[in-house]
């Protein structure tokens, strides 16, 4: 089944592994993600912090392209893109705002834009837990995973439409469907500090450290994320965070698509695991050990 898809710039750079694993997992689930043509950057954090109309213009152009293509529903994997696209769509409901943006774009844009939703929600709408379970080739039962949505995915609630803004549970159900042990992770929607990564490094380190510390204390094997910025921040800057908290962390931070891909039996190459700063080898080893232990006991049982 084909789905219109807005990859966003990170997918082509810093989160190439997210993109790779998303394509791989969606492909297995018979979700064919088709890029809308000639898309541009959503403007992300810098644009909307400076000027809402310019920021909306960047998004509106993408939405308009999708509308012209006759798209009903547009998927995107990055929460920041999702947030910007949805905010812009909301603001464009105001005719005066719409008119000003049209002027910026030199073109009247569509009066009705397609709905934008996350790949995660798209996946859940596309297939149920049983369907996901049918693709599982590796047993993740040995892993305790801390689901972490970041601050953007579910907020503001009235725009993002992602369940309870304080306690979303969609990722839990996907991971659960893959057979993993999912922790009740209390900081699942706390900010990792990513957007202050440059001006306030200390603060970012402190916020990230809190998340990493709790996951470590809860004996999680990995933190599972859905946001390129969170991933980069928790993974790449893990050492900075550790320094600020005077602690040591060794916490793999994987995209939910990467861990799902592992469950589906895909290889590390298929999922871009080589891009991780804190490697996933430990996870793979644990999965393998558990599998061989099970095989051992199964054989033992036979004998």
């Amino acid at each position: 089944m084909n789905y219109a898809y807005y990859p966003g710039c990170s997918a082509k750079g810093s989160s190439a592994d997210y993109e790779k694993s998303t394509q791989a997992v969606c492909g297995m689930l018979d979700m064919n993600l088709v890029d809308i043509r000639d898309w541009n950057c959503c403007g992300s954090t810098p644009a909307h912090a400076v000027n809402t109309e310019l920021s909306a213009a960047l998004c509106a152009r993408n939405l308009d392209i999708a509308a012209q293509q006759g798209v009903q529903k547009l998927l995107t994997s990055c929460p920041s893109c999702l947030s910007n696209l949805r905010h812009a769509a909301k603001r464009m409901e105001d005719p005066a705002f719409h008119a000003r943006v049209d002027e910026l774009l030199d073109n009247p844009t569509a009066l009705k834009f397609p709905a934008v939703t996350s790949v995660m929600q798209g996946m859940a709408a596309h297939c149920d837990a049983d369907e996901i379970g049918r693709h599982v080739r590796r047993n993740l039962g040995a892993l305790s995973l801390a689901p972490y949505y970041g601050c953007l995915m579910s907020r503001p609630a009235e725009i993002m439409d992602f369940g309870d803004p304080e306690n979303p549970t969609l990722m839990e159900s996907l991971l659960g469907a893959c057979g993993a042990k999912v922790l009740e992770f209390p900081l699942k929607t706390s900010c990792c500090g990513a957007s202050y990564g440059i001006p306030e490094r200390e603060m970012t380190a402190r916020l990230s450290a809190r998340i990493l510390q709790l996951a470590t204390d809860m004996e999680a094997d990995a933190i599972i994320v859905a946001c390129p910025l969170c991933q980069m921040n928790l993974d790449l800057r893990q050492k900075q965070a550790a320094n600020s908290a005077d602690a040591r962390f060794n916490m793999p931070v994987l995209y939910f698509t990467q861990i799902m891909g592992l469950a589906f039996g895909l290889s590390g190459d298929d999922l871009g695991l080589d891009k991780l700063r804190v490697g996933a080898d430990g996870l793979l080893l644990k999965i393998e050990q558990a599998a061989s232990a099970q095989r051992g006991s199964a054989e033992g049982g036979k004998a």
Binding site: E166, S190, L214, D217, M218
Partner: peptide, 8 residues
């Protein structure tokens, strides 16, 4: 803003 168990 939030209360959460510290895991300990």
């Amino acid at each position: 803003s939030a209360i959460y168990p510290d895991g300990q």
